[in-house]
Design a protein around this nucleic acid. Sequence first.
DNA 1: CAGACAGGTTTGCAATGCAGACTGGTCTGT
DNA 2: ACAGACCAGTCTGCATTGCAAACCTGTCTG
Lengths: 99, 99
Amino acid sequence: MSDALRALASVDRTIHEPARLMIVSLLFLVKEADFLWLLNQTELTKGNLSAHLAKLEQAAFLQVDKRFEGKIPRTSYRLTPLGKRELARYRAAMRTALG
Amino acid sequence: MSDALRALASVDRTIHEPARLMIVSLLFLVKEADFLWLLNQTELTKGNLSAHLAKLEQAAFLQVDKRFEGKIPRTSYRLTPLGKRELARYRAAMRTALG
DNA sequence: CAGACAGGTTTGCAATGCAGACTGGTCTGT
DNA sequence: ACAGACCAGTCTGCATTGCAAACCTGTCTG
């Protein structure tokens, strides 16, 4: 089994999913974002986005920060260090795989 | 929506699946292969490999060539021109997405 | 007060990936 | 000749997904 194949066999499915790869890539660039912004950028449906965020949170790849600004709930999402590491690993794996 | 995101949103799920990406990558390199060889290279189970090959055939990304060599059935798999093009497109998309 | 919008969660459905059991045939050893 | 191993797959059943639409709570606007 070649390196390229080994790389593919070991990719993290959580990140590999295109919708989630969009999310983590965005968060990697902007550091922090809220739900609506992610919704607009990704063009996913709300339910879908919510589900993907939940999955990423469950994998501890992102951290949800809910707080109030006055009466308005302000939720922001950002990558955890683990999330950043996994994204880097994923990128490296895919680069290896794609030659 | 950035180019990177657009690229991700449009990836072909048939090829994106790691197991199938292994298969098409292998076939791209070797031009032609049989079931056992693919089985050994990918380390998938037979049922799994069979299902993925069927899906790739259904998408017209690969072509199955069954013939007899004496009494022994000799099946070989190879990419179609469409399969090669789609792999190229996928690679380009992922490179764009991963920066 | 009605309606729009933010910020999600819950539900239901169809498709998928996966492994293991099964089939049908050939080859090898005794 | 027969048992067992191997090749080449297919079939089946299961659990997990991804997806969209419906729903919910609360705020803000006209």
